[in-house]
Amino acid sequence: MRVTVNNLTFAYTQKLVLSNISFSLKSGEFLTIHGKNGTGKTTLIRCFLKMLKVNDGMIYLDDMDINHIKTFSNIGYVPQKTDFNYEFPITVFEILSCAYLKKRDAYYTKIINDFDLNKIYHENINNLSGGQLQRVFIARALLNRPKLLILDEPTVGVDVDNIKTLHETLQNLKQEGITIILVSHDMEFCQDITDYYLILNELGDYEFKKAGDNNVSS
């Protein structure tokens, strides 16, 4: 999926968070968004998902203005671990089967097998480790057959082995042509597969650069 952002500006009441951000990604490209706490990483994602109304600027997905998209399709989203209710009494089976709005089919089974979720399929999410939970969320995001995958801090609270597995998964997804936007504190994670960096600074300032390139556009 092609992603184009033109002069995006967003402010919370009086605090400017994102200022005139512009960049574009082709299908299958990988963008890592980096920045300190409070620089607007999650805010930018929320603008993408129409959860926040931008003050100015446009976002296009495959040349379609997101304001004209009534319901999203082909977008996979992996939330930050703090973004949902852990006390919610729900099993892995319920999360995945409810997220898959169609009847369970061979694709569904493939995703369950690919992410090795059979053993924890009927577990309550409270009993899962950080790595297991992350696998569940990535599997859920892929059930949508996304062309754009957005991951918000997927490595937080995940052990080294699971971070390696996550890296391999993202590498494979990129090879399949899925556009990936990764929000991460960790600059080293996925540096070998990242095509572009978007570095957000305070007061809405930003840098957009190609991986391995020192020329910066802002």
Binding site: R46, L49, K50, M51, T71, F72, S73, I75, G76, Y77, P79, D83, F84, N85, F88, I90, I95, C98, A99, L101, R140, A141, N144, I150
Partner: peptide, 10 residues
């Protein structure tokens, strides 16, 4: 469970 996911999943 997850309103944001509900939005992006159509």
């Amino acid at each position: 469970f997850d309103e944001v996911y509900a939005r992006v999943s159509g």
